[in-house]
C-alpha cells in the first residue's frame, strides 16, 4: 500500500455548517502552524470532528498546548494504523467545552518505530499505549509502566498481529477452524 492511497481517505468538509470546527483548526494553525503537517490535517465531513497531523517529535508539546489553551482534558483512545512505510498513532481527544473531537496523529517510520510517550501528561493513556506497542510494535519511549497487557505470555516479542504484513506464521488462525473434539490427554 503506497501513500497515494491514503491521501484519498481524507474527505474535508465545506466551510459552511462547520464554522466552529474551522475556527478551532484555524486558530491552532496560526499558533502552532510550524509543527502541523498539512497532509492529514482537515475538518471531517461528520459534524464535530477535526483531524490534525503533527511532527512526531512535537507530540508532547502539542498535547500540552492543547490542554492549556483549549481545555482538552478528555482522552478517548489511541488507535494505530499500518500505512506500509509508516506506522501511525491516532490520539483521540474530546474538547468538552467546545464539543469537538480532536484526533492528533503522528506518522513514525517503520524502521525506527519510536516516539515520546504522553502517559505522564495524560494518565489515561497508560493502557492504550501498552496495547499499541504490543499490537503494532510502535514504542512509546518513556512509558512509566511498560508491560504486556493483551497477548499471551508465550507470544514472540517480534510479532505484531495487527500489522498488515503479519502472515500468521504459526497457523493460529487455522487452528480454531477445527471440527469435533480433539484427543485430550
Amino acid at each position: 500500500m503506497s501513500n497515494q492511497d491514503n491521501v484519498s481517505i481524507f474527505r474535508p468538509a465545506l466551510e459552511e455548517g462547520h464554522e466552529d470546527e474551522y475556527a478551532l483548526l484555524n486558530q491552532i494553525k496560526s499558533e502552532m502552524g510550524d509543527i502541523i503537517i498539512e497532509e492529514g490535517t482537515y475538518v471531517h465531513i461528520q459534524p464535530r470532528r477535526v483531524f490534525i497531523q503533527i511532527r512526531p517529535d512535537k507530540l508532547r508539546d502539542f498535547v500540552k498546548y492543547m490542554q492549556e489553551k483549549h481545555g482538552m482534558w478528555q482522552f478517548s483512545t489511541l488507535s494505530g494504523r499500518d500505512l506500509g512505510n509508516d506506522l501511525q498513532a491516532n490520539y483521540h481527544f474530546f474538547i468538552n467545552d467546545k464539543k469537538i473531537a480532536v484526533t492528533i496523529r503522528i506518522n513514525v517510520p517503520r524502521t525506527m518505530p519510536e516516539y515520546q510517550s504522553i502517559t505522564d501528561i495524560v494518565p489515561a493513556a497508560e493502557f492504550v499505549e501498552n496495547e499499541l506497542r504490543e499490537m503494532f510494535g510502535l514504542v512509546p519511549v518513556g512509558h512509566p509502566n511498560p508491560r504486556r497487557c493483551e497477548l499471551p505470555e508465550n507470544w514472540p516479542a517480534d510479532e505484531f498481529p495487527l500489522r498488515k504484513d503479519w502472515q500468521d506464521p504459526r497457523g493460529l488462525m487455522k487452528r480454531s477452524q477445527t471440527t469435533g473434539p480433539k484427543e485430550v490427554k
Partner: peptide, 15 residues
C-alpha cells in the same frame, strides 16, 4: 472461529 487467539471450542482443551 479463525481468530488468532482462540482455540475454537471447549472440546479442544478438555473433554
Amino acid at each position: 472461529r479463525g481468530g488468532y487467539n482462540v482455540l475454537g471450542g471447549v472440546d479442544q482443551a478438555i473433554p
